[in-house]
C-alpha cells in the first residue's frame, strides 16, 4: 500500500496528534484546558484549533488547493496573530504537521532502498511540499492579520481627528455628486 494511502487511513490519528502538538505550544495549565473543554463557546481557542486543524489535515492529504484551505488557515492564524507569540511561533504550528506525520507513518518511512522505498520517499516529499506551501500561505495570512490590526489603530486615530476638525468647522471639502463623501468615524457603516 502506498504511503499516502496508509496515511489517509490514519487521518484521524494524524489530525488528533497534530492538533495535540499545536495545543502543546501553550503553557501546560492552559493546554490541558484547551484539550478537554469541548464547548465551542467556553473554549473558543481550543475548539477552533481542533476543528480547523482537522480541516487542514484533510486538505493536505487530499491535495486541496490553496483557496480551499484559506478559511481554516485564517481561523487559526487570526487567533495566534494577536496572542503573545513571535511571528515564528504564531505560524510554526503548520510545520508541526511534519512531526505528527513522522510519528504516524513511523521513523523508517522512506529510508529503505528499492522501488517501494523510493515511492514512499516521493509520497513524503509530496506531503512535505504541501506543508511548505501551507506554511508560506500562513505567512501571508499572518501579515494580513497584523496589517489589519495596524489599520484598525490608524483608522480609529484618523476618524477621531477627522470628526474633531469637521466639528470645529476647519474643513472645506469638495462635495461628491449627490452625497457627502465623509467616511464613517470608523470607516465603516
Amino acid at each position: 500500500m502506498r504511503l499516502l494511502e496508509r496515511v489517509r487511513e490514519r487521518r484521524q490519528a494524524l489530525a488528533d496528534r497534530w492538533g495535540d502538538l499545536v495545543l502543546s505550544t501553550y503553557p501546560p495549565e492552559t493546554a490541558s484546558f484547551l484539550r478537554t473543554e469541548r464547548d465551542p463557546f467556553r473554549n473558543p481557542v481550543g475548539t477552533t484549533i481542533r476543528r480547523e486543524i482537522g480541516a487542514l489535515a484533510e486538505g493536505l492529504l487530499t491535495g486541496a488547493d490553496a483557496a480551499a484551505l484559506e478559511g481554516p488557515l485564517d481561523a487559526i492564524v487570526k487567533i495566534r496573530a494577536v496572542q503573545a507569540l513571535s511571528p515564528a511561533q504564531a505560524i510554526g504550528f503548520v510545520l508541526l504537521f511534519k512531526q505528527a506525520l513522522g510519528e504516524v507513518v513511523g521513523e523508517s518511512a522512506g529510508t529503505g532502498s528499492g522501488d517501494a522505498a523510493a515511492r514512499e520517499l516521493a509520497d513524503l516529499d509530496e506531503l512535505h511540499g504541501r506543508v511548505d506551501a501551507l506554511t508560506l500561505a500562513a505567512c501571508d495570512r499572518y501579515v494580513a492579520c497584523r496589517e489589519r490590526i495596524f489599520d484598525i489603530r490608524a483608522r480609529a486615530a484618523t476618524a477621531r481627528t477627522y470628526a474633531l476638525l469637521k466639528r470645529a468647522g476647519l474643513l472645506s471639502e469638495v462635495e461628491a455628486e449627490g452625497a457627502a463623501a465623509a467616511p464613517g468615524a470608523e470607516g465603516r457603516p
Binding site: T30, Q83, A84
Partner: peptide, 17 residues
Amino acid sequence: CADKCHFFLGSGDPKNM
C-alpha cells in the same frame, strides 16, 4: 473561575485565570 475569564480564554496566559 479559572476558565471563565475572557482574557484567559483569548490569551492562554495562565495568569489571566
